[in-house]
């Protein structure tokens, strides 16, 4: 399905990013796994990808740093010869109530989760314009649509990503570069493992499908958008949330 394609997944060493990297590799794509700090985990993803007869490399880069991003994209193109799919997945949280949130907590989350998407998108757009094709998939969040107490910084960034997705889709459409966002709801990850039984149950009551999602559920929608099956879809935000937000 993605044979011969080259994908870059930011924040690809863990959680949803890891599931996406593995899913794209299973479909035949060569994958560059970006990580910020967890080199060991990134290496494990690379090793696992190589079992699927796809090639993979790991690249350390802070997506909020333009020099890092430029060097990362250069490495991917040098290594694999093209760059067909960018998945902007890297993200952090620094939750706090608005009244208690420090300026740094706000800034750091915006830098990584929103500016990082801008820098990586700008960085690959040149290569994709030359190729006259490309898929950019931004991992947003359902809270970017609904809001969420305690996450002013994260929600602002994710809502920003949705707006950035639409603008990039319009600017690059004539060059056959398709840009979409995927907005996960409650997905079982390290983050949701920390919730209490009570918090978990109250979350489940808001989900029509009455279960949490898996990282693979998100990865499969990304795979659809990255593949030729998604060739008439651009500028959209697809909710992968068990029906929570309609």
């Amino acid at each position: 399905m993605l044979k011969g394609k080259v994908a870059l997944v930011t924040g690809g060493s863990r959680g949803i990013g890891k599931a996406i990297a593995l899913e794209l590799a299973k479909q035949g794509a060569n994958v560059a796994v970006n990580y910020a700090g967890s080199e060991q985990k990134a290496q494990e993803v690379v090793d696992e990808i190589k079992q699927y007869a796809s090639d993979a490399i790991k690249i350390q880069a802070n997506v909020a740093n333009e020099a890092d991003v430029k060097a990362m994209i250069k490495t991917v193109v040098e290594q694999f010869g093209s760059l067909d799919i960018l998945v902007n997945n890297a993200g952090i949280t620094k939750d706090n109530l608005l009244m208690r949130m420090k300026e740094e907590e706000f800034d750091q989350v915006i830098q990584t989760n929103l500016k990082g998407v801008f820098l990586c998108t700008k960085g690959v757009s040149r290569q994709m314009m030359k190729q006259k094709s490309g898929k950019i998939i931004n991992i947003a969040s359902i809270v970017g649509v609904t809001g969420n107490p305690g996450q002013a910084n994260y929600v602002a960034a994710k809502a920003g990503v949705i707006g950035l997705t639409k603008t990039t889709a319009k600017e690059l459409a004539t060059r056959n570069i398709l840009v979409n966002a995927v907005a996960p709801g409650f997905i079982e990850t390290d983050m949701t493992d920390l919730l209490t039984e009570e918090q978990r149950n109250s979350m489940l009551q808001m989900i029509p499908l009455e279960r949490l999602g898996k990282a693979e559920d998100v990865a499969k929608v990304v795979r659809f958008l990255a593949s030729e099956d998604g060739n008439y879809v651009t500028g959209q935000t697809i909710h992968v949330d068990g029906g929570m937000v309609m």
Binding site: R126, M129, K130, E171, L172, T174, R175
Partner: peptide
């Protein structure tokens, strides 16, 4: 505008 960006590239 995009044509000009491409030309420059």
């Amino acid at each position: 505008s995009l044509d000009v960006v491409e030309l420059v590239m």
